[in-house]
Design a protein around this nucleic acid. Structure first.
Lengths: 168, 168
DNA sequence: AATAACTTTCAAAATATTTTGAAAGTTCAA
DNA sequence: TTGAACTTTCAAAATATTTTGAAAGTTATT
């Protein structure tokens, strides 16, 4: 397989993966493109290689920066901005975990806490089913939150080493 | 807060969570509704409580069954089908991991393997960046695959106990 | 075989998300 | 302060996804 064909396939596959996980296809494709580029790319480069508009390129590059997956690079004497993705996939993974924890898990914990204060007789089947379910999820989410916090703090080797070893 | 209000909020929150993770809002809401219902519900019940059409209810109930999160229940002497969600959130989590691994991780591993066979001189910066990236992701995905396989097989107590303990 | 009680299908409609591109905004060098 | 070189914005258009509901299909009973 030729490089260009392989690149194209990779970009497609990464885009599909992204859209399965609630990330827009194009954002994942921009990420994929930067992942396999040896040099940082300009917005123009991204537009050309993915055949997308300027506005779209800008939007998705900014979103990737928000997620902490891409960084701007300025070159002395050049006005144009260049963009480079973090290449270490372990770091990428940890960063995504970190962001999703902040954006989704923590807000969910607050909602669950609120919901556990529902009024009503615990002997009521409806009430009991509800509180049991919410309590179970709340406990699970709390444990997940703590676990992920440790994971984020843990260094690469720790994750590569200990967890894998533990699980074997 | 009254039960009905709390239920409504939970269904909304679960729907939002789902759509953040690439699951359709309505499918997640049907799941939420079944999670907090003490008794199995009929398609009719789901239609009424979520104010959705028959076709939509049917589609999403079937999808939840596909994901292994909901089961049909037949009552002797009744023609109607009833639906109940698995209530143990650990089991739900493990089931989701199991399905996503099968549906997404394994196909991705195949793609990555194919892509690692790209032609070209390794001293070419473009080729090197590509193969380095793909190799890194392939190794990561392979480890994740094995780790998740263990997680799926592990029993509840193991996950509740050992992993949490390890991470503290 | 006919009917009643259900479930499933699917094309069209509704809705939601993504993309575009031109205009506005910014920044810097002259 | 101007203008060139860029980036950002955002309303409209395009596209993708979800929802509807009526019709078709299924199954058990009579």
């Amino acid at each position: 397989m030729k490089l260009d064909e392989a690149k194209e396939k990779f970009i497609q596959a990464w885009g599909t993966l992204g859209s399965n996980w609630g990330i827009s296809r194009t954002m994942a494709q921009v990420h994929a493109l930067l992942l396999v580029s040896p040099e940082p790319l300009s917005a123009e480069d991204v537009m050309e290689q993915l055949q997308i508009s300027r506005g779209n390129a800008n939007l998705n590059l900014r979103a990737l920066i928000d997620w902490g997956l891409v960084q701007k690079e300025l070159r002395p004497g050049e006005r144009k901005e260049f963009f480079a993705a973090e290449k270490d996939i372990w770091k990428v993974f940890r960063q995504v975990v970190k962001e999703r924890r902040k954006r989704e898990l923590e807000p969910m914990l607050e909602v669950l806490q609120t919901l556990s204060k529902v009024e009503g007789d615990r002997r009521d089947r409806e009430v009991k089913a509800f509180t049991d379910s919410v309590d179970g999820i709340y406990k699970f989410a709390g444990k997940a939150d703590k676990t992920l916090e440790k994971l984020i703090r843990a260094d690469e080797n720790w994750f590569l080493g200990s967890v894998i070893k533990l699980l074997k």
